[in-house]
Amino acid sequence: MVLAFVLAGASPLEAYLKLGFAQDPDQVLRWGGGPIRYFVGDRDLPGVSGEAFRQAVGRAFASWEAVPTATATFTEVGFTGLSPLSEDGVTTVGFEDVFDFDDRVLAVTSLLTRTGSGEIIEADIAFNAAVAWSTDGQSGFDVEAIALHEIGHLLGLGHSAIGETELRPTGGRRVIASGTAMFPIAFSSGSIEGRRLHADDRAGVSDLYPTPEFQQATGSISGRVQKGGASVVGAHVVAFNMQTETLVGNFSIGSEGRFVVAGLPPGPYLLRVEPLDDADPDSFFQDSDTVDVDFRVGFASQIVTVRAGADAVADLEVVSK
């Protein structure tokens, strides 16, 4: 079994760090079957009672469970006084005092997986108890929004790069906008904007836990990203549905710079490709040394039509900055 951590919260500096998965990159991490049973930590923090925390976490689980094209389901077992990061075979969501990670990290998800199959057998979500939290959006980081992000990791999703940030003069990054719950940098303290799932999140969880209808009703776009004939690794490719105005993204990976954007409803799409420069590449890739960020934002030269149950091929050519 392998224990991996996903650091996915924001911090006073609103930046994340991530250790990444110590897994075979071709291995898909997901639960074997549902419902996923979880306990909730019973601690009270200033401004967040144990009951308010339980309700906020429950709403976040419910948001994921409500995705109609995914089969992931959850059952809350009850309160627990155990530490969320203990390796005990029990999935726990709660506050943690001693945080061994960067103090800017808001929350962390640890996954215990079965070696070989990638099956998740335990996932714990620890909220940094040293951070100011809130469940009413008045002040502090929003428990429900951060729980929504962490539950995405609990389900096996990595970070998405649909978002824009800017560098702070004092260091770190500040998020300007985000189009996915799985963006690695959280909204500001006091914001509840991160409480909803986006098309990118729904496509991701549905790709991991698809209903039969989802596989039949959606298609994908795949291709390569190249720069002067050479493969580009780590390019962020976003498919924009021109009719529903939704964005779903993925990355070019492997020695050939191949990408697949899956879970796309049929329709016309515009493909946008951008360098991974709105967050630390380490937030997305364990081996970020190969990530190429030296190219300009570009678009596919034509509209790409996606058909249900089919893959549309579209290669992208980018140029150096």
Binding site: E164, I176, A177, G179, G190, E193, M242, E245
Partner: peptide, 24 residues
């Protein structure tokens, strides 16, 4: 036309953030 929008950070004024627009 269509707009690719993101959710703006409250600290950026909230609302929508337009990544790009298209007209066909």
């Amino acid at each position: 036309g269509a707009e690719a929008t993101l959710t703006a950070n409250t600290g950026s004024g909230g609302g929508e953030f337009t990544l790009f627009s298209i007209e066909s």
